[in-house]
Design a protein around this nucleic acid. Structure first.
Length: 574
RNA sequence: CGGGGUGUAGCUCAGUAUGGUUAGAGUACUUGGUUUGGGACCAAGGGGCCGGAGGUUCGAGUCCUCUCACCCCGACCA
């Protein structure tokens, strides 16, 4: 018999509530508070109550189990990390205010770890000196802290949260890629065991750097990320990086080159109407100020009038830290005219990037870089060799899949996992080198793999609930079986409940006995709100030798004879 | 960080335009009784620095100033 897996409801600390908390909006947030799983303490900070702690532990066990099977080793690094490490990697600047910093009594600067690349490299760099000690894959499941500008949605975006962060070290790019694939497979197993409906998508690597990167997205309308997925094949990508087949032209149009007066017409729609030409044939110019570590520069991005600029792609293609809107003055200083920017008559030395789908196009309408004028019949056939082309556009619903030609559509997703092919960025900066087979010193090749463990609690609930409450799969439910004694004053009901309770207790099944003195309606509402996968109802039909099993997910009650109930439950709870 | 909103009982909220007995309701809680298959009923109770500080006034939950906290939209987000 294992302790701590069973509980009498009458002794439990499970503060449920009928009322919707006034500061919660998202269903998962509301239900987790109402169900007595969590309690808010401050913006982005939550206490886990007994039920919340159990569900977290259950998720953690599954994550750990699969990782250990895949050969990863768990460690536990200090939460408080010396700021010097962050200076070494240069990320103390990059992370900015999200890093919570403070001084100890000796006035040394520390930060609360928001992610542990630096710490993990530091852990291995002095001990791993030879290719013979590689590869390694180390992980921890631990509280992280990021001082988010705007925490929200309960556990979904807290400042303090539990993350599984893993880091692998390799002697070669190939070996890192092998591990990356292994982690992708391992993550799929984890999320499948959690009963989640998820997609693996291509993703932007963002500030962490590296090349290939995959996100694991739980599909939910409340998700903060937009995914582009194909209806016909497996293709899926975060919209920040999604690709499509080049769009076909609506109807070929022949234009004679000329300059036209377009007084005060700046919007593509207006111009399209004025010229009776589809927006596809316009060149849209988007001016942004690109911020680099040491300088700023105005960059002009050109896409078709029927397209929109995807900023994440744009940032990546110019290698900037971020893009911000350029002010009127900044545009003028650069020699640009807002509303009439175009591909012809550009001022000298202005940096430009063209969308790939504009390559070799002709019969275009474009701003004249002169107030109130546009050119008609412009061509991009004669651009210089070194013109910068890149994928810049936002993929829209209905666009065609670049893999199979199927129709693309949008889905909303909650990011619960992200795996990166990191390369040598951190090992170089932090000097984590080893000697290869030729005795040559090399930086270790790294991969990094994250899972939002506490966020998964929200994600599970977000994906699995109804108007009555939470619906938990038995793999992660705090108790798999709830034994509801309808009226504890009826000794035969209570006795039968106790019998079943001790039976499953001895089998090691996490079980709770609802022996509270409350009425049936009150207790069944609680059971549905909390989301026990199975509730055994011992009530008025007991005298006829019958009890009922409530299947939470199906929302159905099933009558079972008292003789068969143990076998039946054992079957269900397996 | 910009814009908006809200702070009154454990929880959900009235009351604040027009200052004036002892600050209310529902729910939750305690006690007694009646109930007992879908958040019961009757009765009696306990519970408040009206977010905080300062001010105006004979008098402030209510008016003024400042502050803090929380939520929403946006920016941001390995």
């Amino acid at each position: 018999m294992e302790k701590g897996r069973n509980l009498r409801f009458s002794r439990a600390y499970i503060p449920t509530s009928k009322e919707t908390p006034n500061d919660a909006v998202l269903q998962s947030h509301i239900l987790l508070i109402r169900g007595g799983y969590i309690q808010g303490v401050a913006s982005g900070l939550y206490n886990l109550l007994p039920l919340g702690k159990k569900i977290l532990d259950n998720i953690r066990d599954i994550v750990k189990d699969e990782l250990d099977r895949a050969g990863c080793q768990e460690v536990d690094l200090a939460f408080v990390t010396p700021a010097e490490l962050w200076e070494e990697s240069g990320r103390i600047q990059k992370f900015g205010k999200e890093l919570l910093r403070f001084h100890d009594r000796k006035e040394n600067l520390f930060v609360l770890g928001p992610t542990h690349e630096e710490m993990m490299v530091n852990l291995v760099r002095d001990n791993i000196t030879s290719y013979k000690q590689l590869p390694q894959n180390l992980y921890q499941i631990k509280t992280k802290f990021r001082d988010e500008a705007r925490p929200r949605f309960g556990l979904m975006r807290g400042r303090e949260f539990v993350m599984k962060d893993g880091y692998s070290f390799h002697e070669s790019e190939e070996d890192m890629k092998r591990e990356f694939s292994l982690m992708e497979e391992t993550y799929k197993k984890i999320f499948s065991r959690l009963g989640l409906d998820f997609r693996v998508v291509e993703a932007d690597s963002g500030a962490i750097g590296g090349t290939g990167s995959r996100e694991f997205m739980v599909l939910a309308d409340s998700g903060e990320d937009t995914l582009v997925v194909c209806k016909s094949c497996e293709y899926g990508a975060n919209i920040e990086t999604a690709k499509r087949q080049p769009k076909d032209a609506p109807e070929p149009v022949e234009m004679t080159f000329g300059k036209f007066l377009t007084p005060n017409m700046k919007a593509i729609d207006e111009l399209s109407e004025f010229f009776h030409v589809d927006p596809y044939f316009f060149v849209k110019a988007v001016a942004k100020k690109a911020i680099f570590e040491d300088r700023e520069e105005i960059v002009l991005f050109f896409v078709r009038g029927s397209d929109e600029l995807e900023e994440t792609k744009a940032v990546g293609t110019v290698g900037a830290l971020e893009l911000v809107d350029a002010s009127q003055e900044e545009l003028e200083t650069a020699g640009l005219v807002a509303g009439f920017m175009g591909v012809l008559n550009l001022p000298q030395n202005i940096r430009t990037v063209y969308d790939l789908e504009l390559k070799g196009s002709k019969n275009l309408i474009t701003g004249a870089n002169e107030v109130d004028y546009h050119y008609v019949g412009a061509t991009l056939e004669e651009l210089p060799e070194d013109t910068h082309f890149a994928d810049l556009v936002v993929v829209k619903e209905g666009d065609l899949c670049s893999v199979c030609g199927g129709e693309l559509h949008y889905k909303k997703g909650i990011e619960v996992g992200h795996i990166f092919q990191l390369g040598t960025a951190y090992s170089e900066k932090l000097k984590a080198n080893f000697l290869d087979q030729n005795g040559k010193s090399q930086p270790m090749v790294m991969g990094t793999y994250g899972i939002g463990v506490s966020r998964l609690i929200s994600a599970v609930v977000e994906q699995s609930h109804d108007d009555k409450g939470i619906i938990l799969p038995k793999e992660i439910a705090p108790y798999r079986l709830n034994i509801l004694v309808s009226n504890v004053k009826k000794s035969e009901e209570l006795e039968f409940g106790e019998e079943i309770y001790s039976h499953f207790q001895s089998l090691g099944v996490p079980t709770i006995l609802d022996d509270r003195k409350d009425r049936f309606g009150f207790k069944i509402k609680d059971a549905e709100l909390i989301g026990f996968p199975y509730t055994l109802i011992i009530g008025k039909s007991l005298k006829d030798g019958e009890v009922e099993i409530l299947h939470r997910a199906r929302g159905e009650k099933e009558s079972v004879s008292v003789d068969e109930v143990k076998t039946k439950l054992e079957e269900l709870l397996k």
